[in-house]
Design a protein around this nucleic acid. Structure first.
Lengths: 300, 300
DNA sequence: GTCTTTGGATATGAAAAACATATGAAAGGC
DNA sequence: GCCTTTCATATGTTTTTCATATCCAAAGAC
């Protein structure tokens, strides 16, 4: 049973006449008569009593009419839903995010909530490596991660929006802040302070780059703790365990009570981050919508 | 959105491949590719990620897939239901019946209940005239009524199955039965007995025919009560109000406690009944099924 | 590496379906 | 009685759908 025939049938039943239904359907009357006949033959059922002049639904016709309303309504709703999903007005946005990049996600999330309330956001947290794998397994569509990516699977091509490079800062427990003079801290000064860094396997390239900066400056870092989670890092710092080195934006996404922040004066690496996705993959409407917007903000 | 395209899409999603889906659909691969593309263009949505070799549902595609299962399932169920209705396996049987004909309905109703439990029976009671009108208004499809019909609307043609003509009998209250000698009662004897007859406007022609028989026999009937309802008539009789003249079969459909029945020896009219329906009307499956069966029993 | 296999897209022509125009029959309004 | 309305049928045209042939890319065999 075809949708078209069903729609024809319903219109005829609604109008009570083939001629009027044909007008409504913007077609001539004979083909409509023909299509009705074909539907009846297909179902092997008479749907209308051909009275003298007006048509009258038979029992079977009345039953089909009720069903037709449901079926056609469902189809229409479905088309709307699919189109809405694709336009980004509804659907699900599955994002992977690294806690150290969390700040960059705050604004787009607020925007999505405010403008497209029917869009659900699925968040997944993890380090760069985990998120890239999750993306390969299609658990997430895009990821907010730190560079470099250290991708292993080169069969897949990636697209990215680069987020602004930012300096690393030192988050020092307020109780220990007196030992630092001025508004900046010199790298040389850091050797005396127990440091909290992102875990080697979490940040991947990031860790090596920070350590590299220390070496280039001829400073031996005093690493108190490597931690896989940026929020945890700050929590440890405010607890007085040590001073955390984190990208500046990270401090804007998490509570900084008990912390005092100092730019690191002569540190010559910057933290880089990006929004990354698989190039060949067809992204959901909400995702595409968000990416377009982010591209507008940060440039392609 | 067309049913055919939706079915194609679902098969592709099920099989995960266009080629395999085409085999299952008994068609060549190129047109299937084409139809999928047309569906995507129609919805303005990409439904599959065209990976290197395998297809992968997009978010929109996955949503459509879920809906497609529902829609196609509903359509299939509907087709089955309509066909079942028409074959008489389910649906509704709306019958009008005159109480005096009720006996003839008992067996077909038992048969329908036993063999097609999904068929619902809508009963409507009334005199011949009322039922014929109800039929014209499509409240009922067929009627079990007494002849003659006295139809006023001659623009509609009727078909009928004639039920066996039967004699009238006299139902006498047991308390008064002594006055009758033998197993039969003579018409001449009836003038002394208060009679209960079907109402003039209910039985229509019937009433006149019974009265006519009295006149031909030269007997003046002593009519105690005209009543529109056969069951009521018998109830009155068993209450001792008088002796009821009813078609023989009526006594088999209603309780006869307190009644003794006598054939009326020389009454030369018979009660006639029929199952009647509008010729041009397309009857529901259950109705047609019943009529076929009745025709087999009583002849066409 | 080359060769084979497998799966998808495109091009083109043929078959089938859907449609419009013209026309006829039956029923209701005047 | 005549005109209008409405459904049905007949016939030809347009559109849609399909199959065949071919190409391309990727994956597996060797």
């Amino acid at each position: 049973m075809d949708t078209k025939r069903l729609r024809y049938f319903k219109t005829i039943a609604d109008e009570g006449q083939i001629t009027r239904a044909a007008r409504k359907l913007q077609m001539a009357q004979p083909p409509l008569s023909q299509q009705l006949k074909l539907l009846e033959e297909e179902l092997n059922v008479q749907l209308f009593d051909r009275g003298k002049r007006s048509l009258q639904l038979t029992a079977a016709g009345a039953a089909l009419y009720e069903k037709a309303k449901i079926i056609l309504g469902t189809i229409e709703d479905t088309v709307h839903e699919i189109k809405a999903m694709d336009s980004g007005e509804m659907g699900t946005l599955s994002i992977g995010v690294n806690k150290s990049c969390f700040y960059y996600l705050l604004e787009p999330m607020r925007h999505i909530r405010a403008n497209t309330p029917n869009v659900k956001i699925q968040l997944r947290e993890g380090d760069t490596y985990t998120l890239m794998q999750a993306m390969a397994e299609r658990d997430i569509e895009v990821a907010f991660v730190r560079f470099p990516l250290n991708i292993e699977d080169f069969t897949v091509q990636y697209d990215a929006i680069t987020l602004p490079a930012e300096r690393y800062v030192l988050a020092v427990p307020t109780t220990h802040a007196r030992s630092i003079e001025g508004v900046e801290v010199q790298m040389q000064h850091l050797s005396g302070i127990p440091l909290l860094l992102l875990h080697r396997t979490s940040g991947r390239g990031q860790y090596e780059r920070v350590i590299g900066a220390f070496h280039r400056a001829g400073v031996q870092p005093n690493i108190a703790c490597e931690c896989p989670d940026a929020a945890m890092l700050l929590s440890l710092a405010s607890a007085g365990i040590g001073a955390a080195i984190v990208p500046e934006s990270t401090l804007q996404a998490f509570p900084t009570e008990g912390l005092q922040v100092f730019p690191i004066a002569n540190m010559n690496v910057k933290a880089e981050a990006a929004i990354v996705w698989q190039r060949e993959r067809y992204l959901s409407g909400p995702t595409r919508r968000m990416l377009e917007r982010m591209r507008g903000i940060y440039g392609g």
